[in-house]
Amino acid sequence: MKLTVKYFASVREAIGRPGEQLDSSAATVAALRAELIARGGAYAEILAPGKTVRVAIDQVMSDESAALADGCEVAFFPPVTGG
């Protein structure tokens, strides 16, 4: 299935780009994160299991157990610090 993945703040800086289109068979956010970690390098470092990374699906805060569907927009970012 096709996904749009976006990265923000420290995650964007570490990975070196604001997002990408990808083809994935990941059923959940956790599975997608594992796929990205498996690429190694900056992905493995910034998305490592010990790191607090928040996720949004279609621009709504979500969590690791959330299911993905074709055409989803998935975003990974650090804890938010606005206000």
């Binding site: 923000f8 420290s10 805060m61 975003a75 970012f77 938010v80 610090t81 606005g82």
Partner: peptide, 11 residues
């Protein structure tokens, strides 16, 4: 709510 749930990041 905004402080912890709105997607802003400060550098």
């Amino acid at each position: 709510y905004l402080k912890t749930q709105a997607p802003f990041w400060k550098k």
